[in-house]
């Protein structure tokens, strides 16, 4: 370490740093060029679009409206009149935000716990190949087929309810048609589908933990649980960071399951941010408003990411 510091001091600034930056850019370039052209530029267009009124068509039909789109989606006039309760109780955006947040808060920890538990169980065990494949299966199969299956499973007298009834709980309602249960059916399907996916990530990460570390812990007399807490979990931090950022993002972007299973209903019980965006963009042709809603989503996700990001830095600086 000291040697490095000395060298660092010697070449502190100047040509070498520039050359190093060039090297870094040469690593980035192949990906960044494609990324910039096909993703970043369109995304920047979308950011700008949130300040315009546009129904599609020629670019000449763009009409600059400033923050009007935001005022509309936040129901600014009504909120000023009736208070913030109106926003969360009646405005589409408020309800979509509430539903999406609830869904995210439940789904993310649930999926992470399930995925991590599965990965730990399947890390070194006979027959793991079979189980790993089984748990990854849901992620691999096509969304339509899966959702249709689950809608049927969750029917009033479907197998899930029959199972619940057999446990002695009196529950006799179709999940997707019930205001409180509908969102839980979305959560159930999401966890079921994604736990295998994140399990794979954790499995891959577990391979990266130096065996010396666990061995040292065993020698120190740590039991399995302590080993898990003090060695495995900290070592998995970069992966957990990735998993939680990706999950928060994908939860905030939940669309397919809702579109196929509940269509946002009953009423607005499962209306999510992206179902709302889809509706505004493609059903009502208000691309400006759709972009504005996306910006709300972007801000939330970025805020969460930056918090997670800085805590990651703190961790690696230790």
């Amino acid at each position: 370490m000291s040697q490095a510091e000395v060298r660092k001091g010697r070449y502190k600034m100047g040509r070498l740093e520039k050359k190093n930056t060039l090297i870094a850019y040469s690593f980035l370039a192949p990906n960044f060029i494609g990324f910039a052209v096909f993703t970043l530029i369109p995304v920047i267009c979308a950011v700008a679009l949130s300040l315009f009124e546009w129904g599609g068509g020629d670019i000449s039909r763009l009409k600059f409206v400033g923050l009007d789109n935001y005022a509309t989606i936040f129901a600014a006039k009504k909120v000023a009149e009736k208070g913030i309760g109106y926003f969360f109780g009646r405005a589409d955006l408020g309800i979509a935000l509430k539903n999406t947040a609830f869904y995210t808060v439940v789904t993310v920890p649930l999926t992470i716990v399930c995925a991590l538990a599965l990965a730990m169980l399947l890390n070194k065990i006979r027959g793991a190949v079979f189980f790993r494949t089984v748990f990854f299966f849901p992620y691999v199969s096509s969304m339509v087929a899966i959702c249709v299956c689950w809608s049927f499973m969750l029917m009033r007298n479907g197998p899930v309810n029959q199972f619940i009834m057999a446990l002695g709980i009196d529950f006799n309602k179709g999940w997707t048609a019930d205001s409180t249960m509908a969102i839980w059916s979305i959560i159930l399907v999401s966890v079921w589908r994604n736990m295998g996916y994140y399990m794979v990530l954790y499995l891959a990460a577990l391979q990266g933990i130096p065996r010396e570390l666990t061995e040292a812990a065993t020698v120190d007399g740590a039991n399995k649980w302590q080993q898990f807490l003090h060695v495995t979990l900290p070592q998995l931090k970069p992966t957990t960071f990735f998993v939680s950022v990706m999950m928060v993002i994908s939860c905030f972007k939940i669309y397919d399951v809702v579109a196929i299973m509940t269509e946002g209903g009953p009423g607005r019980a499962t209306k999510m941010l992206v179902t709302y965006i889809y509706d505004e963009a493609f059903v009502k042709n208000r691309y400006g408003q759709a972009s504005a809603i996306s910006m709300v989503l972007l801000v939330i996700v970025l805020a969460i990411t930056i918090i997670q990001f800085s805590s990651e830095k703190k961790f690696s600086n230790d």
């Binding site: 965006i277 889809y278 989503l297 996700v301």
Partner: peptide
Amino acid sequence: IAVPWQAY
């Protein structure tokens, strides 16, 4: 990643 594809 955070911007939904529908928007752009």
